[in-house]
């Protein structure tokens, strides 16, 4: 477990009751990179993503063995505080999920629950987060309107801004653009490129062009196994494993 890896996963197994969903996953992810997880539906890539900030804890009957470390700290260690873990390892979901409140309150929600009360500080966080998510110019005149009035793409960027407001290190994105139109998708993809300078991003995607466009490394999952991880260029041009090649050339999945 060397210090320079941002995330270090070893011998990770996950069971839903009797169903063995992830088999001996080994993976390391460096700081300030974008890692894409690809694979057919049900291959375990989303499940894997959710082990990184323990969102699987919400599901009954999940059992996990092995270890996941972020900055050398074991995520599943007995002394780990889930709340501080999730503050550091944040998540963007497949469908935009803004709270039914104003745009301002959506962004301020995170800082507020973590104890920031001063209006001036909150104002600054809201503006900075919205700017980082490239949404500020579109919403600055209606911060007090309901977030549910935004378009799908704007809502998703709002969710990213809401996440940035709690200043995590790692962003987990679970098919963040699958519910968006092409233009919104493009905006979110551009966003990931600027966010990469400050964050480590792990993105699950069904869209292989997307993985090829935005990621530095790509991991291919199949039936709960991690088939291979490599530089994105390598995976999409000359993968080591025949199954990876079959998948990316569209022979199955």
């Amino acid at each position: 477990m060397t210090e320079r890896h941002k995330i270090n996963v070893s011998k990770l197994n996950l069971f839903y009751g009797d169903n063995h969903a992830l088999h001996d996953i080994e993976m390391t992810i460096e700081s300030n990179t974008i890692a894409a997880l690809i694979g057919p539906s049900g291959c375990g890539k989303s499940t894997f993503l959710r082990t990184l900030n323990r969102m699987n804890d919400l599901i009954d009957g999940v059992r996990i063995t092995g270890s996941v470390a972020v900055d050398g700290q074991n995520v599943y260690g007995p002394e780990t505080d889930i709340v501080s873990l999730r503050k550091r390892v944040g998540m963007v979901f497949q469908r935009p999920n803004p709270f039914p409140m104003s745009i301002y309150d959506n962004i301020a929600y995170g800082p507020r629950i973590h104890g920031t009360k001063k209006k001036a500080v909150l104002d600054e966080i809201v503006e900075r987060s919205l700017r980082q998510a490239a949404l500020w110019d579109e919403v600055k005149d209606r911060l007090n309107k309901s977030a549910l009035g935004l378009s799908g793409g704007q809502q998703q960027r709002l969710c990213i801004a809401r996440l940035l407001a709690v200043e995590p290190d790692v962003l987990l994105m679970d098919e963040p653009t699958s519910a968006l139109d092409p233009i919104s998708t493009l905006k979110v993809e551009e966003l990931t490129q600027t966010l990469k300078e400050r964050y480590t991003i792990i993105i699950v995607t069904h869209n292989m062009q997307q993985a090829a466009r935005i990621s530095d490394v790509t991991s291919f999952f199949l039936n709960g196994y991690l088939v291979e991880t490599d530089k994105t260029d390598k995976i999409f041009t000359n993968p080591n494993d025949q199954r990876t090649e079959d998948y990316i050339t569209g022979r199955f999945g």
């Binding site: 969102m55 919400l58 501080s84 998540m91 709270f99 629950i113 996440l163």
Partner: peptide
Amino acid sequence: LPGRLEEASLALGAT
């Protein structure tokens, strides 16, 4: 209420 509200809040580190 949709489960995504709860997920969103928990994923931000809320108790």
